[in-house]
């Protein structure tokens, strides 16, 4: 049956309306979390004289890079309707593997590639278990979290492995001014992820699969393949974060990255994503990462004890998410 001109016009109008609504919602989410971030910056600027300085700004950027890179992958997983707890095991596994490889004389670039492959394998295992065996991502990635974390301890014998040659920490070297390579890497990866989500077929498929997995399958999308690829990307980025943290510390340790899963999920949710999938984006995620990193930094400068820092971070997280939820409800009522 051929659609009439009138039907086509209605369909086109509906598509535009949906697009406008999505853009408006995404814009509101960004404005909302952006406003929260600005408020946090203003508060700490008054609360601590050391906060709004050039060196502390660099400090915040370097502090958030590791979680930022993990969060990029986590955002892809959450948008596609899953999530990945195993990043907390893949980060230390990446750090320890990198330290062992470079200490064994493997060239730095090759070592980074090998570590990315390790992450990719873990991601592929996650993706295949979720799609082929049908086990829930929570259980699957909890299992691989335990395995990868245990592997990191086994490989390192539970001890810190310092780099024999500090030059292997090249990613932590300064480049533009006082900004390290890894901060620039985060920015570059964020731009790539943003463009991929916004303008590529793969990116649009992630939103579609996250929104309605079954409908996407019926529409002819290769849902399982896309899901596996998402987990591969997520774990590869987590292993890269492991390389970065090892480069920062000039050592690999199985204790690093323990908070990576919780912090990255929190950042993605703060950035406007929903655990149900289909919603979210890179700019929001990055602001979410900055919110968490800035709160932590600001409270440290204010000499707030660690226990209260945890309480304050959790409270602000809940408030920000509740604010986002309220906004979502209000926008829904208006439309």
């Amino acid at each position: 049956m051929v659609a009439t001109d009138a039907e086509q016009r209605v369909a086109t109008a509906q598509r535009w309306a949906t697009t406008r609504e999505n853009v408006a919602q995404a814009g509101l989410q960004l404005i909302g979390i952006g406003a929260v971030y600005v408020a946090i910056v203003i508060f700490f600027s008054f609360a601590s004289e050391n906060f709004l300085t050039y060196s502390n700004t660099i400090n915040i950027l370097t502090n958030v890079t590791v979680i930022g890179i993990v969060a990029l992958g986590q955002a892809l997983a959450i948008i596609s309707g899953g999530f990945d707890l195993s990043v907390s095991g893949v980060v230390p596994l990446g750090a320890v593997s990198f330290a062992l490889l470079v200490n064994d004389g493997v060239p730095t670039v090759l070592a980074i590639l090998l570590v990315l492959c390790v992450g990719g394998v873990v991601g592929a295992v996650n993706g295949l278990i979720v799609t082929q065996i049908g086990i829930n991502p929570l259980i699957t990635t909890l299992g691989t979290l335990s395995i990868t974390s245990g592997l990191a301890y086994s490989l390192s014998n539970g001890v810190t492995i310092p780099f024999k040659n500090p030059d292997n920490g090249v990613l932590a070297d300064k480049t533009v001014g006082d900004i390290s390579y890894y901060v620039i890497l985060l920015v570059a990866l964020s731009i790539v992820a943003f463009l991929m989500l916004r303008y590529s077929v793969f990116g649009r498929m992630l939103y579609a699969i996250g929104g309605n997995r079954e409908a996407s399958r019926l529409a002819g999308m290769r849902v399982n393949l896309v899901t596996v690829l998402v987990y591969v990307l997520c774990a590869s980025l987590a292993s890269l974060a492991g390389v970065i943290v090892a480069s920062q510390l000039l050592a690999g340790s199985a204790t690093v990255g323990a908070q990576a899963a919780l912090q990255s999920i929190a950042a993605v949710i703060l950035g406007g994503a929903a655990l149900t999938g289909g919603v979210g984006g890179i700019p929001g995620t990055l602001i979410g990462v900055l919110v968490l990193g800035t709160i932590s930094n600001g409270m440290a400068l204010m000499q707030v004890p660690a226990f209260y820092q945890q309480i304050a971070t959790g409270t602000i997280l809940l408030l920000a998410v509740a604010f986002g939820r309220l906004r979502h409800i209000l926008v829904g009522e208006q439309s």
């Binding site: 510390l249 340790s253 440290a300 400068l301 004890p305």
Partner: peptide
């Protein structure tokens, strides 16, 4: 500073306190 006895938390904690 609270370094939690670990490499990473101590690195971040001391980095922050050095600002003060």
């Amino acid at each position: 500073v609270d370094g939690m006895g670990t490499l990473e938390a101590s690195y971040t904690g001391v980095k922050n306190v050095l600002q003060t």
